[in-house]
């Protein structure tokens, strides 16, 4: 067998643990410390461990919520269905949300799919260039001049049927986990970047929808007109205070 054909089979053996292991082993030297079969197993184990670790790094909260045994079970099933197709291991796990739709754990834990979506979005924002908005005084001037204002692009809108942020932060605070928590409620979130740190803020549905208007350049007068049924004057002040102190607006 030439090297090209051998490579193809070895890749299959390592990633799928297929039955051709004996065939591959016949091309490999036994050494006093490692038989050919054991050597292949070392690569199989390393492959599983490496990809599982990558998933654990991306989906830290899901790992915490599922626990080691169930997460590893999920990872094993995912790895056997979705090989890595990127040169960067950090990209691994993109299809997990889709995968969960047909996986038993996705049915057992209805919030899991949302958590996976949240954590993958977190990863995307983390790797995105921090888009810094304008200082408060500049925005005030733009509002006075009724220039179109819009949100920076290192930010995204998320909505879930569960209190995902509450579940997400459990990984950082073990004590809350001792008590049953109420998480079956809708949640509206903005995920954004400040000083290269990914942050989140939750809003009411109306506030969140009001903010969505500014994803496209909109003059302040038009914004007030379109948003008057969504937020009160006080809420409007709070929203603009939040946008200003986090430099999330441009014009």
């Amino acid at each position: 067998m030439n090297q090209k054909d051998f490579n193809d089979i070895l890749i299959e053996v390592i990633s799928n643990r297929s039955a051709t292991m004996d065939l591959i082993a016949s091309y490999i030297k036994n050494s006093p410390h490692l038989t050919a079969l054991r050597a292949i197993e070392v690569y199989q184990e390393d492959y599983q461990a490496r990809l599982t670790e990558a998933l654990k790094n991306t989906y830290r909260a899901s790992y915490f919520l599922l626990g080691d045994r169930e997460f590893k079970h999920l990872a094993k099933d995912y790895i056997s269905s979705y090989p890595s197709q990127s040169s960067d291991l950090d990209d691994y796990g993109f299809d997990m949300e889709l995968f969960l739709k047909s996986h038993q754990l996705g049915k057992e834990y209805p919030f899991l799919s949302s958590m996976i979506h949240f954590e993958w979005t977190f990863r995307n924002i983390f790797h995105k260039k921090w888009d810094i908005g304008l200082a408060g005084s500049e925005i005030e001037k733009a509002i006075m001049d009724d220039k179109p204002i819009y949100l920076v692009n290192s930010l995204c809108f998320l909505q879930y049927d569960f209190l995902i942020s509450k579940l997400y932060f459990l990984k950082d605070n073990n004590s809350d986990y001792q008590n049953p928590i109420e998480y079956e409620n809708k949640e509206f979130i903005i995920m954004y970047k400040k000083n290269e740190i990914v942050l989140i803020k939750t809003f009411s549905q109306n506030q969140w929808q009001f903010l969505k208007i500014i994803t496209a350049p909109t003059s302040f007068s038009k914004l007030i007109q379109e948003g008057e049924t969504l937020v009160t004057k006080n809420e409007l002040q709070d929203i603009f205070h939040f946008l200003n102190i986090n430099s999330l607006l441009k014009y």
Partner: peptide, 12 residues
């Protein structure tokens, strides 16, 4: 390290 559509991230 594998193939383009199946990168093992192993140094083989």
């Amino acid at each position: 390290t594998g193939k383009k559509l199946n990168n093992l991230h192993n140094l083989l």
